[in-house]
Design a protein around this nucleic acid. Structure first.
Length: 548
RNA sequence: GGCCCGAUGGUCAAGAGGUUAAGACACCACCCUUUCACGGUGGUAUCCCGGGUUCAAUUCCCGGUCGGGUCACCA
């Protein structure tokens, strides 16, 4: 192989690897350099958020750098606005970059460009050098050729599969043959001339799995595709070298290509970075577990959490909880600390792939919301509703004071809400001023006491004192109970329920259902004071009507 | 199928050659209580299977089973 062939293959490439080595010098400082490198193929997956969060954490806690690199070498899969979608989604979850694209065209950072489609000449300069050095060669095999090779290999039964050894037909083409193919205008890919030895095992270091023993790569993998763009493997080696990534933290699915990547780094003369392969987030599907699927599982999309209104902090905390068992105790000791201040040791990361657990997320979310102030909640609910529930937003805006006053009713000393979509849904009697309770049924145990219900509600209306405070109000409820012969001491009632026609709890329940339409609510007195005496009275009257 | 990774309650998991095998979520009971929620107390439930090493194995080793990943000119 020769310089001449290399020139023929890449006639327009005049830069050498040395040029780029000089252009992109090593970074200052000893911090760790990490990156998130997604393909802009649509929405952000929860696993992508997970990975980026961890990368961000590692860079930040070491005083290093974290950058975004767009892997857009597959022209077929590109999606319009794919880059902006990713950046926006990440930003919504507080993942920000030190370097990388801002939007579809602009970017910042000393190692630009950060879009692989813009780095074509860089990859080609290295590919050209590899060809010159005899470490790579052009391959003219068609898809059909490849299929035939595969078919023969399967028949042959030797167990080898793929473009390698004697099957690699273009590996030993002479310069003359190559020139002939080229002048015939045949398209080509460039393949690495693998130096791996068949069957030879080797240990590869992984910061999460430890030493992983795998066979050396013997495949002559494609490094440059027919369209001149690099494959993932090649771009990874070139970019992470030139951008000086120190730690490659990525999804588990890459573990099996580690031999290829290490080989690439070594043949290119690069230092091999530290690798960490993160376990995927799983889903329990019936009795089997599988990876969260974009198509089947709404929770796979990061946008799902915003739409349903989980607080961003809850999602972040949940992801970190999955990531390291040390996070929860840390959070317990530092309840209000920024999640990014957690010091993560990748060695503590689980190796088996956590099942996504909504119960746990909900629990974290409840506590996050519980710790918020009423003002913060007001802002968060309004922001959520404005984007995802315009009717509810209009309601809030129509009477901000009313909504503000309602928050402590369900927030004070309570953990009722896990996500903002539950607010209007859980308390229709507060947030729907035309709410009609008359169709709502009493709990089953009280359903046959219609006469009592009617009478009690009428007694209540007759004795209602708008000026009464909470205690006086409840004293009145008790007195109604007493007049009806209902037990007013719950302890006593529970010991001997058959001795009474009912209890104060039942009286309260008649009122609760008449006023709210529900059997379970926060403090009734507060609700009445929020919706107003008149509204409460109106609902009770309607309810009495219905009882007939 | 080849190669790789993994397996501790329902879920997330700590853990060490000898432990009453942590903790969190969920669940259940009780207390508190006008419902629910909150809070409190207590509870049910786990080391995948078979060999080997050892005085001793859930822990180390080897098999198996099961689950996951990967075998592209996709990333």
């Amino acid at each position: 192989m020769s310089k001449r062939i290399a020139d023929l293959l890449f006639p327009n490439i005049d830069k050498t690897p040395e040029f780029y080595e000089n252009k992109y010098p090593a970074r200052e400082g000893a911090g760790r350099v990490t990156r998130f490198a997604p393909s802009p193929t649509g929405f952000l997956h929860i696993g992508g958020l997970y990975t980026s969060l961890i990368n961000r954490l590692i860079a930040k806690q070491s005083g290093g750098a974290f950058y975004l690199r767009i892997e857009d070498t597959d022209q077929k899969r590109l999606v319009e606005n794919g880059v902006v979608d990713i950046i926006t989604a990440l930003k919504q979850f507080e993942v920000e970059f030190d370097e990388g694209p801002y939007d579809e065209v602009n970017e910042h950072g000393a190692y630009a460009p950060y879009r692989q489609s813009l780095r074509k000449e860089i990859y080609q300069a290295y590919a050209k050098q590899l060809v010159t050095d005899g470490k790579a060669y052009p391959c003219f095999c068609t898809e059909e050729d490849l299929q035939n090779i595969r078919a023969e290999q399967e028949k042959d039964g030797s167990g080898t599969l793929g473009y390698c050894g004697k099957w690699a037909r273009c590996r030993d083409l002479t310069d003359e043959q190559i020139e002939a193919e080229l002048s015939a205008g045949k398209p080509f890919v460039v393949r690495l001339r693998s130096e791996g030895e068949a069957g030879k095992m080797r240990e590869f270091a992984d910061g999460i799995h430890g030493a992983v023993s795998m066979p050396e790569n013997i495949l002559d993998i494609v490094i440059t595709k027919q369209d001149g763009l690099p494959t993932y493997h090649f771009a990874h080696a070139i970019d992470d070298h030139l951008m000086h990534s120190t730690d490659i933290i990525r999804a588990d699915e890459w573990l099996s290509s580690l031999p290829i990547h290490v080989q690439l780094f070594e043949m290119l003369g690069f230092n091999v970075p530290n690798y960490y392969h993160l376990s995927p987030i799983m889903k329990l599907d019936g009795t089997s577990r599988r990876k969260l699927s974009k198509r089947k599982d709404p929770e796979a999309r990061v946008s799902f959490y915003r739409e349903t209104g989980y607080p961003v902090k809850a999602v972040i905390d949940y992801l970190l909880t999955i990531c390291s068992a040390k996070f929860e105790p840390w959070r317990a000791e530092n309840p209000s600390a920024d999640s990014l201040d957690f010091t993560l040791d990748l060695a503590d990361t689980g190796v088996s792939g956590a099942m996504f657990d909504f119960d746990k997320l909900d629990n974290i979310a409840k506590n996050v919301i519980g710790a918020m102030t009423d003002d913060e909640i007001f802002a968060a609910v309004l922001a959520w509703a404005t984007e995802f529930a315009p009717d509810f937003a209009a309601f809030i805006n129509s009477d901000k004071d009313y909504f503000m006053r309602s928050i402590p009713i369900w927030h004070e000393k309570r953990l009722d809400i896990k996500k903002w979509s539950e607010v209007a849904q859980l308390y229709p009697y507060m947030y729907n001023k035309q709410y009609d309770t008359s169709a709502c049924e009493m709990p089953e145990r009280m359903a046959d006491r219609k006469a009592d219900a009617k009478e009690i509600l009428e007694m209540y209306l007759a004795s209602y004192d708008p000026a009464a405070d909470s205690d006086a109000w409840f004293a009145n409820v008790k007195s109604i109970a007493e007049q009806k012969g209902y037990c007013i001491k719950m302890g006593q009632y529970k010991k001997n329920p058959d001795a009474f026609p009912g209890s104060v709890a039942d009286v309260s329940m008649f009122l609760r259902v008449a006023i709210t339409g529900q059997a379970n609510t926060p403090d009734l007195y507060k609700i009445i004071k929020l919706i107003g005496d008149e509204e409460a009275e109106k609902r009770i009257k309607n309810y009495i009507e219905k009882i007939k």
